[in-house]
Design a binder for these strands. Structure first.
Length: 103
DNA sequence: AGACTGACGATCC
DNA sequence: GGGATCGCCAGTC
């Protein structure tokens, strides 16, 4: 049986791949979708190695504050290309771009 | 087995 | 709205 980790990766990447262009999702939102509402940190962990599994729009995943990935300054540029807008501090406008999820 | 860490979230101030 | 603290879960040392 696959380790919990492998199953987790599959589910997370599936959700990430479903994120429409011009939208962003918080880690907590994905965590809830995969059935681990309190494991939002796992999303980031998996996404960090998502590139090893394939090409996924991990740049569309931000935290609940709308903050981008620390150390990945280029993420903002990628999001701007997707018509994502930012507020004065460089945070994503969650109110406007937060993906509905499974709605 | 135990302790620390982290692409987080919610709460409190 | 922003900064600080606690809580969760899994991975890593």
């Amino acid at each position: 049986m696959r380790t919990l980790n492998e199953d987790l990766i599959y589910e997370i990447l599936a959700v990430v791949d479903e994120i429409p262009k011009g939208k962003v999702v918080s880690y907590g939102r994905i965590a809830k979708l995969i059935g681990r509402p309190q494991n939002a940190r796992l999303i980031g962990r998996v996404l960090s190695m998502a590139d090893h599994f394939g090409d996924y729009p991990c740049h569309r995943v931000v935290n609940a504050q709308g903050r981008l990935v620390p150390g990945w300054n280029n993420q903002r540029t990628l999001l701007e290309m997707e018509n994502i807008t930012f507020d004065g501090r460089g945070y994503v406008n969650m109110k406007m771009h937060l993906w509905d999820g499974d709605m």
